[in-house]
Simulated scan of single mutants.
Amino acid sequence: MSDDPFLANRGLLFTIAYEMLGSAADAEDVVQDTWLRWDAIGADARADVRHPRPFLVRMVTRKALDRLRANARRREEYVGEWLPEPLLTAPDVADDVALAESVSIAMLTVLETLTPTERAVFVLHEVFETPYGEIAETLGKTPAAVRQIGHRAREHVAARRPRMEVGRVEQRQVVDRFLAAVWEGDLQGLLDVLAPDVVLVADGGGVAQAVLNPVAGAKKVANLLKPFRRLTPGAEIVPTVFNGTLGARVVGIADGFDTAISFVVEAGRISRIYVVRNPAKLGMIDVVATLSR
């Protein structure tokens, strides 16, 4: 491990920024800004920092909050549904169940419904176990106020988060059945593997073709996906681990845009499907992300 505290904690800093922003590109920018600020304080000042990890966490959190607030207007003007940017992840991310759930597309989508401050408190306390006192110092609030914000955020997330309590073997079996049914155009196979109240959300960003509104219900989703092979000759579906869980990547579609798909599996069926086609969000799906906590 590097002797430089920034380099030693870079994976952590990126993970915090990514969970707060839902964008790998924005997270990289925030981490780079944090590095420039860290470097600018000078070697002597850096050596005087007794606890560099929480110091760096404060820096990256504040910068991520600034970016999150600045992005609010852009999100409001976004064409269609906005989904987080998928990340190609190594198997060791899936080994850390808490980390894998916290960076899943499903969880990041729920975090989008929090205010920026609520999101910061939830991510820092619930995922990274940062004490409320440290979070209060970061946000310029009292520990009591931060505790109240954390309680509110936790209840909000608990009411909306999907229950992803399935093992890897079961998840792979369900996803494999789904992909086979899509490939074969098997309507009954799709109905068998989709939860009755399944929801499909797609993000094309107004650039790549995608449904603009969520599609709900097994029959509607199955009918949407059944003609996939006929409508996309030459396309290939490749099982891929995105954000710590098994998903799929679709390449070779005639419009030239790749597709990243993430799933939520509950009780042996797929309950959520997240489809990202916006090319601006697929720039890092060939690079394994370094995530840690």
Rank of each mutant, 00 (worst) to 15 (best):
D29P: 00
L21Q: 02
A218L: 07
A70S: 13
L231N: 14
K226R: 15
P227W: 04
E76W: 10
E170K: 04
A144N: 13
A47C: 08
L56R: 00
A64I: 03
A100Y: 01
T290V: 14
D255N: 15
T232W: 13
N71T: 12
G268L: 09
I261G: 04
D96R: 08
R62W: 03
Q173E: 15
D286A: 13
L187D: 05
E184P: 01
P162Q: 08
L99G: 00
M20N: 10
V264M: 08
I237S: 07
D4A: 01
V49F: 07
V103G: 03
D203L: 01
Q32W: 14
I237Q: 07
A90I: 04
I237C: 08
L13N: 00
P86W: 01
D286W: 11
G204R: 02
A40Q: 14
N71A: 15
A98N: 13
R10N: 05
L246W: 05
D48I: 05
A27C: 10
L65C: 11
A8P: 02
A136E: 06
K220D: 14
P91W: 02
V79S: 08
R230W: 07
P5C: 08
P52D: 03
M107E: 13
R172C: 02
V264Q: 04
V174F: 05
V207S: 14
L179Y: 06
E155F: 11
I237T: 15
K141T: 08
D258W: 07
E112N: 12
E184W: 11
R272K: 10
V265N: 00
F263S: 01
G42M: 03
E76P: 02
R75P: 02
H125Y: 08
A195T: 00
M284P: 11
F128S: 11
T113G: 09
D197F: 09
A235P: 01
R75I: 06
V275S: 05
P162V: 08
P5E: 06
M59T: 02
G80F: 04
G133S: 13
I105D: 10
L99R: 01
D197L: 10
E81I: 10
V103M: 04
L194Q: 04
L139G: 08
L99F: 03
W82R: 15
A17N: 04
G247M: 06
E81G: 03
W35K: 03
A222N: 01
A144Q: 15
E266F: 05
A47R: 15
D186V: 09
A94H: 09
R69E: 14
G22H: 00
A159P: 00
V127M: 11
T130K: 08
V123P: 00
R147T: 14
A280E: 14
R37T: 15
G167K: 05
A267L: 09
E126K: 13
R172S: 12
